[in-house]
């Protein structure tokens, strides 16, 4: 009896509020992470020496240091040099950087798999480099990078929970507050876990469908 009241009156409303914040974090970070990934990959592949160096430093830094530390730098560190973000904004920025850095590696790998001859052929037809990258190389590369990118989306769902560590009350944060207040750790975190499992499983099914739809015809999929 008590259990049911706890579930319907306290736990579920709290988790619902948290879930909305989690979805906001993910849906804001994913598109920009994709754009950053494409930008960094193109920069590293076709940019000048300075662009190439900066993109490389960004990728190495973000991949080398824990995301949680990156969030601390954005939220607790930057105010000391006069840049102040809200916790939510700092989280979204952190997720964009992390997602973008990993995406760029997949897209760059896929761009390398598009044969050099296509670039030369495109230029021979009078395209500029930028046009060739935009209309010839990227459409093929992004499709080939899709399995990697969808992995990163699934990671994004999971690491969005780290926003709680810089005070954003998203799904895990909402769970932690309820669990601490009512001393129901196992039940609450299992419930939180079920929501994440649901999100991850749903996304996996969705990206599998997208991958199938956008697979390059005639290419054998791994």
């Amino acid at each position: 009896m008590d259990q049911i009241a706890f579930l319907t009156d306290i736990l579920l409303p709290a988790l619902q509020k948290g879930l909305i914040i989690t979805l906001q974090l993910i849906l804001l970070a994913a598109p920009f992470g994709f754009v950053l990934g494409v930008g960094v990959a193109v920069g590293r592949q076709y940019g000048g020496p300075v662009t190439r160096f900066l993109c490389k430093v960004l990728v190495y830094f973000v991949k080398g240091c824990p995301l949680l530390l990156l969030l601390f730098i954005l939220y607790f560190g930057l105010p000391s040099i006069g840049i102040v973000f809200s916790a939510f904004t700092a989280s979204v920025f952190g997720f964009i950087l992390c997602n973008g850095a990993y995406n760029s590696e997949y897209i760059r790998g896929a761009m390398l798999s598009v044969k050099d001859g296509q670039m030369i052929a495109a230029q021979a037809l009078g395209m500029t480099r930028l046009q060739a990258v935009r209309t010839i190389v990227l459409p093929q590369a992004i499709r080939r990078a899709l399995p990697g990118l969808s992995n990163e989306w699934i990671y994004l769902i999971k690491y969005s929970s780290l926003a709680y560590m810089i005070t954003v009350i998203e799904l895990s944060g909402a769970g932690k507050l309820v669990a601490t207040k009512y001393f129901t750790y196992t039940e609450t975190f299992m419930a939180v876990g079920v929501v994440y499992l649901f999100l991850v499983t749903l996304t996996t099914l969705a990206v599998n469908a997208i991958e199938k739809k956008y697979a390059v015809p005639g290419m054998i999929r791994g």
């Binding site: 999971k158 039940e187 975190f189």
Partner: peptide, 23 residues
């Protein structure tokens, strides 16, 4: 595998540290 790959590490840590192991 599905369970441990589907949950964020933060939630797993909370679940085991505050919930399952003390329980």
């Amino acid at each position: 595998v599905w369970f441990f790959r589907g949950l964020p590490i933060l939630v797993l840590l909370f679940l085991f540290y505050f919930g399952i192991f003390p329980g």
